[in-house]
C-alpha cells in the first residue's frame, strides 16, 4: 500500500510501524526511546507525528503506530513542532543534565515552562535499560518505586549481584544516563567493577568473565578462552588435520 509522508509517496506493508516506513524513505523523525533491538517501548513521545486519514487528523506516536489505512503524514509541521517542543521541555525538566535532550529542545525551540520543578540527572525512565537487561537474561536492574519517585535501580540500591557487566543497559540508554567506565583491564557499571578477559591467542578483548560464563551456561558449553575469530581459525585447522589424515 501507499501513504504520503511530508509530501513524499512511500510504499509500505499494512501493519508496519510508521516510524520505520519514514526512516526507510529517508525522512527524519527524532526519537529517544526507540531502539532497533527493543522495538515498541513507545514512552518518550518525541516521535509524534500528525496523521490525516479521510479528512480526520490525529497526533500519533509514530514508533508504535501501525499503518493500516492510506493516509497523509506530517512529521514536522507547525502543530507537531509545537507539541514536540512541549514534550521535549517536559523531558528536560525530568532529565536536565541530558545533552541530547538539551540539543533537541534547542532544535525544536521548546517553550520555557518556568513554573515546573526540575528533577536531577539524565534519566527519562524510558525503561529501555531494564528491558535490555532482562532480554539478555541477567535481569539485574528494575524500575523501583512508582509515581514521582520512580527510578531505575538495582535491588536494595547496592551493586547488583546478578549483573554480569555486559554493559547493555548503558549502550541502549538514549541519554547516556548509566555510568559506565572501561579501560584496558576493567569495566565498571552500577558501581561494580569487572575484570576484562582477553583472547588467549590474539589478545582481543572478549568482555567480562561473568559475561562469558553466562553465555556458556546458556549454550551448555565451557566458557571459551579464545575470541570468535580465533576459535573459527582453530576449528578450521582441526578440520584440515582431519581431512589430511584421511
Amino acid at each position: 500500500m501507499n501513504i504520503v509522508i511530508d509530501g513524499k509517496s512511500c510504499t509500505c506493508e499494512p501493519g508496519e510501524f510508521l516510524l520505520e516506513v519514514a526512516r526507510r524513505n529517508g525522512i527524519y523523525i527524532p526519537t529517544l526511546c526507540n531502539h532497533e533491538g527493543l522495538l515498541g517501548q513507545g514512552c518518550c513521545r518525541v516521535c509524534i507525528v500528525e496523521v490525516v486519514e479521510r479528512g480526520w487528523s490525529k497526533t500519533v506516536v509514530s514508533c508504535i503506530y501501525p499503518v493500516l489505512n492510506e493516509c497523509e503524514v506530517h512529521t514536522n509541521n507547525e502543530k507537531i513542532k509545537q507539541q514536540r517542543g512541549i514534550i521535549l521541555r517536559l523531558l528536560q525538566k525530568r532529565a536536565p543534565q541530558s545533552e541530547i535532550i538539551a540539543a533537541l529542545c534547542k532544535a525544536y525551540s521548546a517553550p520555557a515552562l518556568d513554573k515546573l520543578n526540575e528533577k536531577d540527572g539524565k534519566c527519562i525512565i524510558c525503561g529501555l535499560c531494564v528491558r535490555a537487561c532482562s532480554t539478555l537474561g541477567a535481569g539485574a536492574i528494575a524500575t523501583v518505586n512508582r509515581g514521582i519517585t520512580k527510578e531505575i535501580a538495582p535491588p536494595f540500591n547496592e551493586p547488583p549481584a546478578d549483573c554480569i557487566g555486559c554493559g547493555s543497559c548503558a549502550r541502549v540508554c538514549p541519554t547516556k544516563a548509566i555510568e559506565y567506565h572501561e579501560n584496558e583491564t576493567t569495566r565498571t557499571v552500577w558501581e561494580k567493577t569487572f575484570t576484562l578477559v582477553h583472547c588467549a591467542s590474539c589478545g582481543a578483548q572478549m568482555g567480562t568473565q561473568e559475561e562469558l560464563n553466562f553465555a556458556a551456561e546458556k549454550a551448555g558449553t565451557e566458557p571459551s578462552t579464545l575470541c570468535d575469530a580465533c576459535r573459527k581459525k582453530q576449528l578450521a585447522l582441526v578440520m584440515a588435520d582431519v581431512y589430511s589424515a584421511t
Binding site: S134, G139, A140, I141, A142, T143, V144, N145, R146, P154, P155, F156, P160, A161, D162
Partner: peptide
C-alpha cells in the same frame, strides 16, 4: 526461579 530485581520492583511499587 526469578530475579531479585523483579520482586524488589514489585515490593517497592
Amino acid at each position: 526461579g526469578c530475579k531479585t530485581a523483579q520482586l524488589y520492583s514489585m515490593a517497592t511499587f
